[in-house]
Design a protein around this nucleic acid. Structure first.
Lengths: 347, 347
DNA sequence: CTGAAAGCGCTAACAG
DNA sequence: CTGTTAGCGCTTTCAG
C-alpha cells in the first residue's frame, strides 16, 4: 500500500500538501500545477487512503452498524440489508451487521460496534413491530427499519401497511369481486392492524358494506386451513386479500378442492412474504411484494444524511416499485408498496 | 473512552506495562501485584481497547469480509450470514458483508474491503454453484460458502446434496412407498446433480429398479404443475422427493385435486428452501432444511482458524441438525443436512 | 522486571 | 501558498 509519505517524496513536497490535495482541500491553498503533480504521482503509485489511519485521527469510520434481531436475519431481512448496502456503497460507507437475541447480547453488540467506531446505527425489528431503541444508542444517529418507534422520535422506515391493503382490496373490487374476504393474521402485529384498516377503508370508499363474517384471522397449518375452508362454505367469497403467502396458499387449496379456478372463479391478491408465490402460483394470483430493498436503501440514505448533516442527493436512488419520499419529508416516514401485477387477478 | 495512558497514570506505571498486562503478555515480565493493580484500574475505568488504534499498529482488524452475489442476499443468505456472525462473534470478530453484481463491482468491493484491512474473506455464491475466487483474493485467507471451488483448492463449505436426497428417498422407502418419484429442477445446478444421484443410489441400495419415467425435472409455475399432473396420471406415484418447496407445492396441489391425502395416500419429502412449507403444509409432509446457519458457522470457524493459524475449539459449536465436521477434516468439506421430521411421511 | 521511544498512516493547527 | 509539528491509541523493540 502506497502511503502519503511515498507520494510526498515522489512529488518532492511535504506530506501535509499531499493530504490537502488528496482530500480536495487544495483550492486556493496549493498552487494548481503542484496539486496536479501530486495527483499524478498518487495515480501513478496507485494510492488509496488507509481508512484505519484516517479514522484514528478523525473519529469517523464511514462504517454503519446494522442491529437486527436474530430471528430477523432469516428470511426477509436480506432485501433490507441489500438495499442498505447499495446505498451505503454509493456514498462510500460500509455496513457491519450484527444480530442479537436478547437484551444482554444486544448491549454487547452495541458496545462492540461503538468500539469499532461506527458513525451511526440501523435498528431493525423484522416484520414491522413497535420498539424503542436502547438508551445506549442515545447519542448516535439512528434510523429504525421495518419497525415503529414507540416514542415517535427516531426516524423509522416501514411499509405503508394501510395502503398495501387499500390497494389490494381496490384491485379486487376493480376485478368485479362482490364478496371480498380478508384472510389475516390473528397475532397482534402492526401489519395486521394497518392492513385490516386498509381493507375496510377500501370497501367503504367503494360503497361496500363491511361484513365481519368475511374476515378470517388465522394462525398457521391445519387450523388455518380449516378456518378458511369454513369461510368458503359459509360465505362463498369471490375475492381474497391475504396477509401473506402462507394464507394465500390456504385459499388456493380450498379453491382447488372445490374445483374453482383461481383467477377465474375466485381472485386472490396476496402479500408475498417469502417470495415463493411468484415461483408457484403465478399467474393465477396477484402478489404484493414488500419493498424491503427500498426500505433498506432509503434508511441508509437517511442515516448518512444525518451523519453528514446534509441532505444526500436522491436523484441517484434506484428505480423502485414505490416512490421514495424526499429526504426532508417528515419523519417517521412510511414506504408505500406497489402491487406487482405479474399475473391477472381475474382472467 | 478510557485509554491505556489514563490507566498508566492511575496505576503509576508506564503505558507499555499496561499494554503488556492488558494483552495477557505479562507472565514472567510484570510482577504479579503490579499486574493486578493495572487490571484493577482498567476495570475501574471501564477500559476497552480501541480496535482502530490497535489495527493500525498490528495490521490485523478482526474484521472478516463476506462477499456475496446480489441475488444472493435474498432470501436464502440470511441463515448463512447469521451463522457466520455468531461464530465470528464468539471469537471476537466482526463481519462486513458486501454484495456484488458483476465482475467490476466485485473487484471494487474487494478493493474496499482490503483497504479496511479485513483479515480474510468469505466468498459465497448462493445455491451451491461451481465458482472460482477472483485472483485479487489470492494472498488472503478465503473460505467458500455454498459454492464449490472450480479448482478444488479453496476450502468450500456446501450442503451434502447427495446425502440429502439419499436420506429423503430412504425415508420414503421406509414409509413403504413403492413408486417413488423425483421432482427435480431442469436447470443445471450442482444441487440437482447431487440430489438426482442420491435418489438413484437410495433406490438401488434398497433393491428398487430406477425408473426414468418416475423422474420429472421441471421449471416453475404452470408448465411445472402440468408436468407433475401428467406424472400423476401416467405413473401414479405414492412417494415424492421434491427438489424444493415450490415443487412440493405442485405435488401437493395435484394430490388435492385428485382427492388424495398427503401423508396418507401419498407421501412427500421436500427441501424447504424458502422456509414457508413449515408454516403451511406441515404436518402433512416432511421437510429437509438446508443447513444454512451451520454452513455459515462452520465457514467462519474455518476462516478464523486459517487466519490465526491454529485450530479453533469446536466444542462450543452450536447444536445443529447436522453434525459438524471437525476442524481438521479434509477440505473441501460438505455439510450434511438432517431431515426435519416435524410431520409424518405417512400417517 | 519496567519504562522510554519510535512509529503505524493520516489530519490539522500553526508557523513561516 | 507550503512545511513543520504534534498527536490519534496502541504495540514493540530495546535499554536500563
Amino acid at each position: 500500500m502506497t502511503t502519503m509519505k511515498e507520494i510526498a517524496e515522489a512529488a518532492g513536497v511535504s506530506i501535509s500538501t499531499v493530504s490537502l490535495v488528496l482530500n480536495g482541500r487544495d483550492e486556493g491553498r496549493v498552487k494548481a500545477p503542484l496539486a496536479a503533480l501530486v495527483r499524478e504521482k498518487a495515480d501513478e503509485l496507485g494510492y488509496t487512503v488507509n481508512p484505519l489511519a484516517r479514522s484514528l485521527r478523525t473519529c469517523r469510520t464511514r462504517i454503519l452498524g446494522f442491529i437486527s434481531e436474530e430471528v430477523a436475519t432469516t428470511p426477509y431481512a436480506g432485501g433490507i440489508i441489500l438495499g442498505a448496502q447499495d446505498a451505503a456503497s454509493t456514498y462510500g460507507y460500509m455496513i457491519i451487521t450484527v444480530s442479537t437475541d436478547g437484551r444482554a447480547s444486544e448491549e454487547n453488540e452495541i458496545a462492540t460496534l461503538k468500539r469499532y467506531g461506527v458513525d451511526g446505527f440501523f435498528y431493525s425489528k423484522m416484520s414491522n413491530r413497535i420498539a424503542s431503541v436502547p438508551a445506549s444508542l442515545g447519542d448516535y444517529p439512528v434510523v429504525m427499519v421495518d419497525a415503529t418507534d414507540a416514542n415517535n422520535q427516531i426516524p423509522s422506515i416501514e411499509p405503508d401497511e394501510f395502503q398495501i391493503a387499500y390497494d389490494a382490496t381496490k384491485r379486487l373490487i376493480q376485478a368485479d369481486c362482490k364478496r371480498i374476504a380478508y384472510i389475516g393474521c390473528s397475532e397482534n402485529m402492526i401489519a395486521q392492524d394497518g392492513r385490516f384498516s386498509g381493507y375496510q377503508a377500501a370497501l367503504q370508499d367503494s360503497g361496500f358494506a363491511y361484513d365481519p363474517s368475511l374476515v378470517c384471522n388465522v394462525l398457521n397449518n391445519g387450523p388455518a386451513l380449516r378456518a378458511v375452508d369454513k369461510l368458503f362454505d359459509e360465505r362463498n367469497p369471490d375475492g381474497f386479500f391475504c396477509f401473506n403467502d402462507a394464507r394465500a396458499w390456504y385459499v388456493y387449496e380450498c379453491a382447488a378442492r372445490r374445483g374453482l379456478t383461481v383467477g377465474k372463479d375466485v381472485s386472490i391478491v396476496g402479500v408475498d412474504n417469502h417470495r415463493v408465490l411468484a415461483e408457484t402460483l403465478e399467474p393465477q394470483l396477484t402478489t404484493v411484494e414488500l419493498p424491503h430493498y427500498e426500505m433498506g436503501y432509503w434508511a441508509a440514505c437517511k442515516l448518512i444524511s444525518m451523519i453528514e448533516r446534509k441532505p444526500v442527493d436522491s436523484s441517484s436512488w434506484p428505480n423502485t416499485t414505490a416512490p421514495m419520499p424526499p429526504l426532508d419529508s417528515p419523519i417517521p416516514a412510511k414506504i408505500h408498496c406497489a402491487l406487482i401485477e405479474k399475473g391477472s387477478v381475474r382472467s
